[in-house]
Write a protein that binds this DNA or RNA. Sequence first.
RNA 1: CGGGGCGUGGCUCAGCCCGGUUAGAGCGCCUGGUUCGGGACCAGGAGGUCGGCGGUUCGAAUCCGCCCGCCCCGACCA
Length: 564
Amino acid sequence: MRLSKAFIPTTKEAPADAVIPSHILMMRAGMIRPLAAGIYSFLPLGYRMIKKVCDIIRREMDAIGGQEFHLPALNPKEIWEKTNRVEAFGDILFHVKNRDYVLAPTHEEIIAQIAADHVKSYRDLPQIWYQIQTKFRNEPRPRSGVIRGRQFLMKDSYSLDRDWEGLDRSYELHAEAYRRIFTACGLKFFEVGASTGAMGGTGSQEFMVESDAGEDTCAICDNCGYAANVEVAKAKVEDYPREEKSEELHEIYTPNVRTIDELSEFLKIPTTKCAKSRVYIHNGNPVLILMLGNDEVNEEKLVAALGGKVRPAHPEELMEITGADAGSIGPINTSLRVIADVKLRHANNMVSGANKNDYHIGGIDFDRDLPNVEYFDLHFVNAGDKCVQCESPLRVVRAIELGHIFKLGTKYSEALGAKFLDERGEEQPIVMGSYGIGVERIVACLIEQNHDEKGIIWPKEIAPFKVHLIGVNMKNEEIKRTCEKLYHEMIENDIEVLYDDRDDVSAGFKFNDADLLGMPLQVIVGEKNLSMNKVEIKFRATGEKKIVELGMLLRTIQDELYLP
RNA sequence: CGGGGCGUGGCUCAGCCCGGUUAGAGCGCCUGGUUCGGGACCAGGAGGUCGGCGGUUCGAAUCCGCCCGCCCCGACCA
């Protein structure tokens, strides 16, 4: 591609409303332009990257037996009502105004419908069906460039199996395909267990990329590879450092002391001698939750521990339930079910609320005074906590979700009548899985992981072009002739090359554009080197420069690009 | 949805508080010339309903009201 003809509108300055590196650089490199909040036009260079990512995805999906579909984005609302997802998605679902249609945010329903119509026998299974298609979601707050948009490209696939063992196989095939896809893209990623949320089903797993621009928080162990969303992450829990002698229970007058920090300050004791109380309503009944010091209740873990529905009690409910306001509630003299975080097991000489405003109780020995307390892991993991697997310190990092795979089960097949006959002639629901990858997010994450102050640094696996050929001064006939020759040679040798043949910009301008656009190798044809029949190769990633004989150039490029 | 910020040529912004020439600068763009290894220089030029509507005023980019749009933090998020 000749830069003199290409539409790649680079800019020196970043638009004021772009904040994260990938957004700034995609704008500056002329890859995207915004149309409205969370809606972007992909320009030729940006779309070239999208296509490269899609090529890799198709290759790996086809390799696990996937068959590519193209399903409609415009769906009758009726089919979404059959699975109750008009309500489940709520405002996220785009509705068409002048007909009873919705814009599809995902395609389980459509797949299940096709399966219901045409998959009749166990002989038809298993199937893996996929597509790469635009999804529409009315996100309340789009952000971070293409990372969270209202319209975005998703590779979504669906597995159809006759039983749960089959689903396990299809799910594992996807997990492996996803690992190959992200690896082929040159991404550093990790996998975490995840909650299934509104998708339903029995299991799910997310593929994440560590990034400050991420919307999720994960705990990861660099030593053994353990990684989990903090919603579910566990760390090794140390035994509570129990004191030798347990004090008697005693009431303490604590006027206007509400928070753990105030209590710790007032009594001159560490926060780890305090047990914080929280009241939740579980399936309509109040339960008292005790946490160590300032630990917050991880509600996802609480739901997992108790099952059913859980919500925090409203402040106005507290007095009626406990006889005190928040800040003076505690486990002694209460008839509530008491649940404590595992960090409090065997704790003694603890202070907690007295269920009487302005009073606390000291000398609480969990073993002696609270024999009926139930213990669960309810705290959030903190950076530096020890890994549950190997006891190395955990890191807590922000991360971007690139892919998510779900074991759906029979929720959609039952709702839409997707059934088949097994060998015994008995009708069974198809067991489904669903799997998604955010295509633009791959491109954004590549930039998040590979950039510097000058611009993008594409990994050589997936750069839009492998070589950026620069003629320093195109008005010099010798330079021009050499560049043209090299350009054609590279094309003939299947080396993707972006050729800066512009004759109206200065050398410095070209160098800066080349660094911004970030192709792995820059080939610089300048007067001085050319007079000795040589050209320069610059490696974008390291800045390293090499002077090469013209005759050795192609060989050198091929070696640099294709050798491991 | 709560909180905050912003909206002035293609981009980055000044002007607004304290109303009053013809609304400015840098970058970009066009023409001509000189340059050509790290975002060159000279000369000339094009380009603006100051987000929209309404109000106050002799007079509004500037003051007031409503609306729209965009960004950030949070809530939410398969």
